[in-house]
């Protein structure tokens, strides 16, 4: 029996030893981990979401519809859309400008700006609202100034817009800064050396390079702008039909034990969140190649 035959003959026996990938766990561990994950998701994410829709539709479709078209609810929906329509573009422009400055230029106070952008994340939204009350309230020094010009800031729409902009400040910038920093300045230098102006470089090179992160940032920013409660609650004054946004309207209905209507409006907000996620997933799935191209290169 030659050496080769000997080895071959022994091989079936050797197969009795199970080889696992070093990065794979044993089956019981895998199953346990997956079950914990699913249980957690179900309990804390899926169940509340389902509960919202179940409660909303408890009184039937007609009651659901009535709760949404009722004048105060309709006003709240309009106001929420109006505020988001101002806050999101404002933070889009700011987010692009700030991340462009931070990622592509060196200047004094860069790290300070970088830290300041995160402030709304670290400060409680209630505090953010109070800041605006202190700044523009009846006893502040800015408030009477605006009042004499005929502009009511606090307990009115301008205050709600300001508070919302403050709270949703970081979303676009935080998406863009890491990506822009990782992409470096090479592409911009190439564009300039080829004769492009600063604006051409920005619109034809810088912006397309980050368009997916930008879209994602805008989606998140929008979701938060429409759903913001704390800061808006402080500055709004809760005037029905005038300064109530959707989240505030939900709270009022709930406090009045009008659960079906509260959940009906809440379900609209929840649906918005679902649509946001769906759009994001759809984009990622549809443009996977292009997204991969802008990330790594």
């Amino acid at each position: 029996m030659s050496d080769a035959e000997f080895t071959t003959a022994r091989l079936p026996g050797a197969a009795a030893v199970r080889f696992r990938r070093v990065t794979t766990e044993r089956a019981p561990v895998r199953i346990a981990l997956v079950l914990v994950g699913i249980a957690f998701l179900g309990l804390f994410l899926l169940l509340p979401l389902v509960a919202v829709f179940v409660e909303a539709l408890r009184g039937g479709a007609a009651a659901y519809w009535t709760a949404l078209v009722e004048p105060d609810a309709a006003a709240a929906i309009r106001l929420t859309l109006f505020v988001a329509a101002i806050a999101v573009p404002a933070n889009l422009v700011f987010g692009i400008a700030a991340s462009w400055a931070i990622a592509k230029f060196d200047f004094r106070g860069k790290s300070l700006l970088n830290t300041l952008i995160d402030l709304p994340f670290s400060v409680s939204p209630v505090i953010s609202g109070l800041i605006y009350v202190l700044l523009f309230g009846a006893h502040s020094w800015l408030g009477p100034l605006f009042k004499s010009a005929g502009i009511q800031v606090i307990f009115a729409v301008p205050g709600i817009v300001l508070a919302t902009i403050f709270v949703t400040f970081p979303f676009v910038a935080r998406e863009l800064i890491p990506l822009m920093e990782s992409q470096g300045r090479g592409d911009e230098e190439a564009a300039l050396s080829l004769g492009a102006s600063g604006w051409q470089t920005f619109f034809r090179v810088t912006l397309p390079n980050v368009k997916w992160a930008l879209l994602y940032g805008v989606l998140l920013c929008n979701a938060r702008a429409m759903g913001e409660f704390g800061a808006v609650s402080v500055v709004s004054g809760h005037i029905r039909g005038l300064t109530n946004t959707m989240p505030l309207h939900v709270e009022i209905l709930y406090n009045e034990y009008n659960f079906a209507a509260a959940f009906a409006v809440a379900s609209l907000l929840a649906a918005l969140a679902l649509v946001t996620l769906a759009v994001k997933s759809l984009l990622e799935w549809h443009y996977a190649d292009e997204i991969a191209a802008t990330r790594k290169h």
Binding site: G186, E189, A190, L192, S193, G195, S197, H297
Partner: peptide, 17 residues
């Protein structure tokens, strides 16, 4: 832009989009 030079970068710096 006015210098009109052709610059080739080590890491290409091609426009990925």
């Amino acid at each position: 832009q006015q210098r009109n030079i052709g610059f080739v970068f080590q890491h290409y710096a091609l426009f990925r989009n």
